[in-house]
Structures are given as structure tokens and as C-alpha cells.
Write a protein that binds this DNA or RNA. Structure first.
Length: 209
DNA sequence: CTTTGGATCGTCT
DNA sequence: GACGATCCAAAGG
């Protein structure tokens, strides 16, 4: 066995770091590729089961549509960064920046399947009654993992800020669920939301059959 | 199960 | 001054 190179978080048994080149592609293929990858945050681990692609300045639903601002600056950075934004006056949401630097492509993490650190997740989300309520929404998973604005710009490849992506060999679904993105008012005709079919942690809002 | 409305504040018009 | 890449509790079926 070749030991994996060490990164800034302790990876679960059998999981390896990801390489940055995996994220240096458009947000549509990267979104599908991210399904079933792991998010590692201290002892808390979740498997990505639902995502949405955003396509920078070409995408009317993207925060980057009207160009770079202090808020969205991380989206314009290199692939592998975490873009964290504050919304509705009280919630944080997290994206994986992908594509080439300056393109502002990103993939919104919409739901995780809890894998480890469930007690910590529950403590961070007292209102969750069932296990599938811990991470079945973009702001819920940030609460469960303790992701806040201080992690905006964190490098998910090196894990230097205490959060990283990892791959334990579970492949993305051959045929993901595909449907329109949630909670947007422009670009609603585009089917840029992807999920792991049948996973109980997929967010329940607008489901396409 | 579904629908509805309130909470709450940074960002950009 | 309006509007969110949301969540939750409450009320109705």
C-alpha cells in the first residue's frame, strides 16, 4: 500500500485526498464527479449526495453573473477553494470552486449523507429530529459541519483550513438524478441540479420525477 | 403528507 | 429599498 500524501485533516480509513486537476473543469462535469465524494471537517464526515452547478458570468442565477465583488471574489479564484456565502440574513451555504481561475465556476453543495461525527452534527443542529435532517439542505449541512464565513477561501485540496474533499472509491452514480436548480428566479429552465438517486438525504424541495 | 408565513441582514440597485 | 443559491414551526388533509 502506498501511503496517501498527508493533508491538513485526518482522512477516514480508506479515503485519499483529491487532486486539484480533478476540479479544473467546467462546473457541469465537476458537479456529477463530486457526487459520492467525501467532505471531511474535523471528525465530521459527509458524503455528497446533491449538488448544483453555477456557471459564472454566463449564468443569470450565479452570484458571479454581474462580475466580481467582495462577496463573490472567491468564485473567481483557482479550483479547489471553498466559496462560502451568507444568505437570508442567517444562513451560510458552501460551494466548491472549479474550472479555471477567473471563470467563476462553482458547485453548490446541497446535501450530504452523514458518515461520521453524527453526534457533533446533531449538537450543531438541535432542531434535527431524524438523521436525514442533519445535512439535507445547503444551509443545514453548513450548520452540521460548522462551516461559516471564516472558511470562505479555504483550500479543499490541501485541507489547510481544516476542511477537505476526499475520495474513498465510491463512484458517482452512472445515471444521477437531474433536474432544475432550487430557489432561483433566473435560469430555471436549466437542469443543473444533480443527486444520487434514492438517497434519503437528498433535499425534499422541488423533486423532478 | 402539503402549504404557508415569519425570521433576519448583507448586498447591490 | 428590495431581495435573496433557506429553514422551521404551525396548521390543514
Amino acid at each position: 500500500m502506498t501511503p496517501s500524501r498527508s493533508i491538513g485533516v485526518t482522512l477516514p480509513e480508506g479515503a485519499a485526498p483529491i487532486i486539484r486537476a480533478s476540479l479544473a473543469a467546467d462546473s457541469l462535469p465537476v458537479a456529477r464527479w463530486l457526487l459520492n465524494k467525501l467532505v471531511v471537517r474535523g471528525s465530521r464526515v459527509g458524503r455528497i449526495v446533491e449538488v448544483e452547478a453555477y456557471r459564472g458570468e454566463n449564468d443569470p442565477a450565479s452570484h458571479a453573473y454581474r462580475g466580481e465583488t467582495p462577496r463573490n471574489a472567491t468564485m473567481f479564484g483557482p479550483p479547489g477553494l471553498l466559496y462560502v456565502y451568507f444568505t437570508y440574513g442567517m444562513y451560510w451555504c458552501a460551494n466548491v470552486v472549479c474550472g479555471d481561475e477567473g471563470n467563476a465556476r462553482a458547485v453548490l453543495l446541497r446535501a450530504l449523507a452523514p458518515v461520521a461525527g453524527l453526534a457533533e452534527m446533531q449538537a450543531a443542529r438541535p432542531t434535527a429530529r431524524r438523521e436525514r435532517d442533519l445535512c439535507n439542505g445547503p444551509a443545514k449541512l453548513c450548520q452540521a459541519l460548522g462551516v461559516r464565513g471564516t472558511l470562505d477561501g479555504a483550500d479543499l485540496v490541501t485541507g489547510d483550513s481544516g476542511i477537505a474533499l476526499a475520495d474513498d472509491g465510491v463512484l458517482p452514480p452512472r445515471r444521477p438524478g437531474i433536474g432544475p436548480r432550487v430557489g432561483i428566479s433566473a435560469g430555471v429552465d436549466l437542469a443543473w441540479r444533480f443527486w444520487v438517486p434514492g438517497d434519503p438525504n437528498v433535499s425534499t424541495t422541488p423533486r423532478v420525477r
